[in-house]
Amino acid sequence: MSDNNLRGVWAIYKFELARFRRTFWTSLVLPVLTTALYFIVFGSAIGSRMGDVGGTSYGAFIVPGLIMLSMFTESISNSSFGIYMPKWTGTIYELLSSPLSAFETVLAYVGAAATKSVIIGIIILATSTFFVEPRVDHPVLMMGMMILIAIAFCLFGFIIGIWAKNFEQLQVIPLLVVYPLTFLGGAFYSINMLPPFWQTLTLFNPVVYLISGFRWTFFGAGDVSIAVSMGALALFLAICLGVIFWMFRTGYRLKS
């Protein structure tokens, strides 16, 4: 019982949330503004010329995709910054010399970043109600998936934060890999709308399964079955946890 350091975990969690609070307004306004712009462009301007997608209006159809788009980027950037900054300023010496286990360290940093991501996800969902009629068939599952996806991408961001040697590397994966994969992962369309060749190719994009699964919790229908989506999410979580376990075990780019 005494062999844990929950006070240490809580200290980091609070510290990280305080960091977010300092940039609260930009963090809050940015997703709201982005969402509003997407709704104006895709929902109203273009969406009005689009038919329904699987019985859902186009404006409502893109809500889950929009939430995912923001949450992916927010999760990765917050989590990677959280662990990269102490490395960059040198204050990581204190973390490494503290009586904190690897699991507790990850719990604190990823927990804080995921908390922020989920808050942003909820804000975007709330914002969307100003533009479209929201419909969430499976609210509990929706929240559960939102939290798990936030955790998965925060774990991924944590890996990038440890791996990155400079600010450029910190940006390169989110911008060059995650953003395109998300855009092409069915955030704004159903993959059924694509020609057959592209449909097949798209199935190699892991993000498709996450967006499809999340959309399923809204409308009870997705590009792939919910079970496959859940499996993909579990696999992604497992891979990230495995990599982080290896990083701490070997001290990769943390210890010399």
Partner: peptide, 18 residues
Amino acid sequence: YRKVRRKIGLVPQELHTD
């Protein structure tokens, strides 16, 4: 390591601060 590290305080050479 937990018991050991609780007993130790470290002041590194470089000024690393938030």
